[in-house]
Amino acid sequence: MSWIDSLVSNPAITEALGPAALETVQMVGISTVFTVLLGLPLGVAMVVTARGGMAENRAVNVVLSGVIVNITRSIPYAILMLALIPVTRALVGTSIGPIAASVSLTVAAVPFFARLVETALREVDPGKADAAHAMGSTRRQTITRVLLPEALPSLIAGATTTVVTLIGYSAMAGLVGGGGLGRLAYNYGYQRYQPEVMVVVLVVLVLLVQAVQAVGDALARRADHR
């Protein structure tokens, strides 16, 4: 069987590729939603409690930035996903499948995204926050109506980078039962030595990342009025 024939006849490609791609999208989708929901407030809290911030609080800042974010970020994902298996079982009842994989993906991506949120907010000219305060804004109004909208293009860029990173992590998660394109490539491309499966999975991943980046860039451009 030639290479080309295999592309259209190998069931790993004709039947398993679609569902595997969907599983990857599912994993990345779920973990992206939770990463933004948790990482955005975490990033805001790190900026607000930092020295010279709106609600300077050294103790809270050290816990958030120094302990939670730095420690989580220093654990390689391959180890983090294994270490979190008991937590995943407790949360979703199983450690197998794309939903279970979303737990460790989210835990890994939240601190990553929170750092990007922190950087994005720090890039906003402090004069804008001054202006907001001088006009009588509450802290909440300054954050939600000024800082976050002003940082929106950078936040979108950060979210895009996070999604791309999650796609990469999701392939690793696939190896320990998460499913998706990672498992397909590993089981067929590597263990059964079907290089055409490996190539096809790579092409799909590249296209996926390109699509995510293109959409992210377009959204960021649209939000950018500078």
Partner: peptide, 10 residues
């Protein structure tokens, strides 16, 4: 303000 400090997103 010296640099107006307008909100670019609005």
């Amino acid at each position: 303000f010296q640099h107006a400090n307008l909100f670019d997103s609005r």
